[in-house]
């Protein structure tokens, strides 16, 4: 199974560089900031963490694909003996990186709650709440990977266009519900862009996280991720390194 050592190599490349420093500091600062006022609802914490994870993974993926060394990628492609292993390893490495930041978001409320006599939140934080919160953060991370990678430089052929396009898509993803409410013509955005703000509608300000909307969001994100990722990789394979 060539993809496992290829994932290890990609993770070594990422975590061995200075790239994670700013996202880690940013995540810690964010967690310190949102968990500074008590009491707080569990739903709000999970929703905010999800949005931050989405934005951060968009930028992390954007910086990773922008920094890809063509020759290095070509050598990995040869070693994978084709696009399948190469693409799978690349996607899984991104998912693992997303999980790393998700763990920080998951640990944040647990640590804060423990430091505040287990009474930081307006209702007691249960293990199930943590698991449900993790689904929200992981799902949002997948959305970030999708947006950060969908305009890959080998698809757009232009780094500047990729940067501008990705930031536009990210902002549209966050504000699309408000836009659609104002102008129904923009309803197509609801299908094109990932439903990152869905947990904000379903769970925001809720004292505890309901399982059904959390799982619905998570599986929706997985489905969305698979569809977009397959299409993206087919386009990348078609375009090769031209």
């Amino acid at each position: 199974m060539k993809s496992v050592p290829m994932i290890k190599y990609r993770l070594h490349r990422y975590f061995g560089s200075s790239r994670p420093v700013i996202p880690v500091i940013f995540t810690i600062c964010f967690l310190r900031f949102i968990y500074s006022v008590r009491p707080m609802s569990i739903g709000t914490g999970a929703v905010l963490s999800g949005i931050v994870q989405f934005v951060m993974m968009t930028f992390i993926t954007l910086s990773l694909n922008g920094g890809e060394e063509t020759v290095e990628e070509q050598l990995l492609l040869f070693r994978g003996k084709g696009w399948r292993i190469y693409s799978i390893a690349r996607e899984l490495a991104l998912i693992i990186i997303s999980k790393f930041y998700a763990i920080l978001h998951i640990l944040g409320p647990i640590v804060v709650n423990a430091c505040n006599d287990f009474s930081f939140f307006s209702t007691p934080l249960t293990a199930m709440d943590v698991v449900k919160g993790a689904f929200v953060v992981l799902g949002s991370g997948l959305a970030g990977i999708i947006l950060g990678d969908v305009l890959h430089p080998r698809i757009t052929g232009n780094r500047r266009a990729q940067l501008v396009g990705t930031v536009m898509l990210m902002l549209l993803t966050i504000v699309k519900d408000a836009l659609i409410a104002k102008c129904r013509v923009l309803l197509f955005l609801d299908i094109l862009l990932p439903p990152v703000m869905k947990p904000a509608h379903d769970l925001g300000n809720k004292e505890c996280l309901a399982l059904k909307p959390v799982l619905a969001f998570f599986f929706m994100m997985i489905l969305y991720y698979f569809v977009v990722t397959i299409v993206k990789n087919l386009v990348l394979q078609q375009r090769k390194f031209s």
């Binding site: 050592p5 050598l75 070693r79 994978g80």
Partner: peptide, 8 residues
């Protein structure tokens, strides 16, 4: 070493 491991 990474490349050798990928080659397997």
């Amino acid at each position: 070493m990474h490349m050798a491991e990928i080659d397997g």
